[in-house]
Design a protein around this nucleic acid. Structure first.
Lengths: 221, 221
DNA sequence: CCAGATTTTCAGAAAGAGTTCAGGTTCGTG
DNA sequence: CACGAACCTGAACTCTTTCTGAAAATCTGG
C-alpha cells in the first residue's frame, strides 16, 4: 500500500514513516513541494499525507496542482492546531480529511484507513510492473498480451506483495507474515504452492527463486 | 446546476460540497433547518440534499414545509445508517431518494443525477446497462428481447444498486447496508436468495459472483 | 381477519479456495 | 561425485462460501 508523506519537519517525518510502515504502508517521504507535485503525478500512490507548511511552497498549491492534473488518490492534510481557514481551504482544494497538529499516530492511521476505504472504487488503482498489471479493485491480473486473470484472495495478496517491490527478495517467512497472522500460519510449503500457481500465470522466469533467501518478482530493466 | 446541501456536520458538508462542485454543481450549504426552509422557498435550486439530523429542527419538517409550499425540486435525504423508519418517513414526506450514511460521494452524485433526470420531465427514468433497462418509475426490468418484468421492492433496490455501477463489486455487507438497517438486518443468505431470483431474470452470467468479495453486474464491453 | 404477495429462513448440495502430502528435482558443498 | 537441504509439483484432502428449492414467516390491501 504505497503512500506519499509530504512533511517539512524531518524528525516528525521519520517517526511517522516508521510507524506507518509498521502499519503496513510503504512510505515515500519528501519535504519539498515541487518534488511532492512530481512524485504525486508520476508515482502510483494509494494516498497522500500533506503538511501544509513547506519550505518551498504552500501545501495547498501542491494539492491544487495534483487535483488539476489527474491525481485522484485521497489526501489527508495536516494543519497547525486550530487553523480553521487552512482546513476549509484544504477541503475546498480537494482534500479528503484533515488532522490538526499535534496528533497521535494512531489517529492518523485510523483516518488514513477511513479515507482509503472511502476511496475504494473511486480510485482505479493498479500496480504495474513490466508486462503485468495488477488491478487492486477487481483483484485481477492483466497481462500485456491482452489476457486477464481473476485471482483468489491469497494469490492476490501474495502477488501484490511481490509486485509491490519488484527486484526485492522476500523470504518465505516474510511472505508468511504478510499473508497470515501469528495464530494461524500454515506449512511453509503453502507459499511454494502459491508461487507455483502464480508462475503458471506470469511465466516461470518472472518470479525468480533465490535459493536459501526467498523469491522476487523480476524488475524489468 | 444549483443545488442546496443541508448538512449539520461541517466537515462532511465541506467535503461533499467540494466534490459536488467538481461534479459540476453549484452548491449552497446550510446547517440550519430554518435557513434551509427559506432558501428552498426563495432560491431556484434544481435539487436538494437533506440530512435529517439538524441542530435546530428535524430535516423531515424541512421537507414537509417545502412540499406544503410549492417547492418542487427533487430532494435526496441522507439518513443515519439503517434508520429505516427515517427512510420510509422521508419518502412519504416527498423525498425522491435516500442514501444511508456512510456513502460514497460517487454514489450520491449518481443518485442526484438520477433524480435530476427524473425531474427533468423525462417520463421514463431508466438505468440502462447492456441489454437491460431498469425503469425506476415503474420498478420494472425491460430486456432487449422485448420481455418486461415487474420487480418487488427488494428485488428492485438490489438490482438498482448493482446496475448503478456495472462492473463494480459489491460485498454482501455493502448490499445489506443499502437494503436494510442494523436493528433489523436479516440473514446474509437473504442476499443470496435475491441474487438467485434476479439471475433467473437476467441470466446467470449477467450477475457474477466474486467468491469472498461479493457480486457485480457485468459491464457490457 | 383472510388471501395473496413478498420476504426471510433453513438445510443439504455444490463449488471453490486453502492447505497438506508424498515424491521428484535441483542446488551447493564437502 | 555424493549427500542433504531447499525447492518443485500434482493431486488429494479439508474447510468455507455460495447455491438452491422449498417452506415458514411476515406484510398488505380489502
Amino acid at each position: 500500500m504505497r503512500l506519499l508523506l509530504v512533511e517539512d519537519d524531518r524528525l516528525l517525518a521519520e517517526g511517522l514513516a516508521s510507524q506507518l510502515e509498521k502499519a503496513g504502508f510503504s512510505v515515500d517521504v519528501t519535504r519539498s513541494a515541487n518534488e511532492a507535485i512530481i512524485l504525486g503525478e508520476q508515482e502510483d500512490y494509494k494516498a497522500g499525507v500533506l503538511d501544509l507548511g513547506l519550505p518551498d511552497g504552500n501545501g495547498l498549491d501542491v494539492l491544487r496542482k495534483w487535483r488539476s492534473s489527474k491525481v485522484i488518490f485521497p489526501v489527508l492534510i495536516l494543519t497547525a492546531r486550530g487553523d480553521w481557514q487552512d482546513k476549509v481551504n484544504g477541503l475546498k482544494a480537494g482534500a479528503d480529511d484533515y488532522l490538526a497538529k499535534p496528533f497521535q499516530t494512531e489517529e492518523l492511521i485510523a483516518r488514513l484507513n477511513a479515507i482509503l476505504r472511502r476511496s475504494e472504487g473511486r480510485v482505479h488503482s493498479t500496480v504495474k510492473v513490466g508486462r503485468f498489471e495488477l488491478d487492486e479493485n477487481r483483484q485481477r491480473l492483466i497481462i500485456e498480451d491482452g489476457t486477464e486473470h481473476s485471482l483468489t484472495g491469497t494469490e492476490f495478496r501474495l502477488l501484490r506483495c511481490l509486485m509491490g517491490r519488484p527486484g526485492h527478495i522476500f523470504s518465505k517467512e516474510q511472505l508468511m507474515e504478510q499473508l497470515y497472522n501469528l495464530n494461524e500460519s500454515p506449512n511453509e510449503n503453502t507459499i511454494e504452492a502459491y508461487i507455483r500457481r502464480l508462475r503458471k500465470l506470469v511465466g516461470p522466469e518472472t518470479i525468480a527463486t533465490k535459493r536459501g533467501q526467498g523469491y522476487l518478482f523480476n524488475d524489468p530493466v
